[in-house]
Amino acid sequence: MSIAHLAPSLAPAQLTPRQTVTPVPTSASTPAAEPSSPTASRIRAVPSGTEARGFVLYVGIDEEKAEADGTELGKIVAQIKALVAQIAPSSETYAAVALAPRGSGGRDVDVVRLALQDPAALAKHRQEEPEPEDRARDGVVIDLSRKRLLLDNESANLTYKEFELLQYLVLREGRTIDRAELINALWSASDDDIPNERTIDVHVRRLRSKLGDYEDIVRTVRGVGYRFDRHADVSVRQTSTPSPDLF
Rank of each mutant, 00 (worst) to 15 (best):
A100N: 03
A45R: 14
T71R: 04
A95T: 15
L122Q: 05
I183W: 08
I76G: 01
D110T: 15
P244I: 14
A100H: 12
L73W: 01
D216S: 05
S41E: 04
E63K: 11
F228G: 00
T239Q: 11
S91Y: 12
P119T: 08
H231P: 01
P242S: 05
P17F: 09
T199P: 07
H125G: 00
L6K: 01
L166R: 06
A4K: 12
P244T: 15
G49R: 09
L114E: 03
A7I: 15
K147C: 03
L186H: 06
G103V: 01
R172V: 04
R44M: 08
A28D: 09
Y58V: 01
A45W: 15
P25Y: 03
D233W: 06
V84C: 14
F247G: 01
D191N: 13
R206V: 07
L211K: 04
I87Q: 11
G60Q: 09
S190Y: 12
A189E: 08
Q14C: 12
A98N: 01
Y226S: 00
G54H: 07
T16Q: 08
R230C: 05
L246G: 01
V221S: 04
L186F: 12
P8D: 07
A13E: 09
N153Y: 06
I217G: 03
L182N: 00
L83W: 13
F228M: 02
S145L: 06
R230N: 02
S243W: 15
Y160T: 05
V84Y: 14
Q79K: 15
L150I: 06
E131Y: 12
N184M: 13
V77F: 06
L166S: 00
S91R: 10
A180Y: 11
A66E: 00
A13Y: 12
S2V: 14
I183M: 05
E51S: 05
A115L: 06
S209C: 01
S243V: 15
P130M: 04
D192G: 13
G212C: 00
I177Y: 01
R172L: 06
E181I: 14
I80A: 00
S188R: 13
H203S: 10
V56S: 01
R135C: 08
V24A: 07
T50M: 08
D178G: 03
V56T: 10
P17W: 11
R222V: 11
A120W: 07
R230T: 12
Q86R: 15
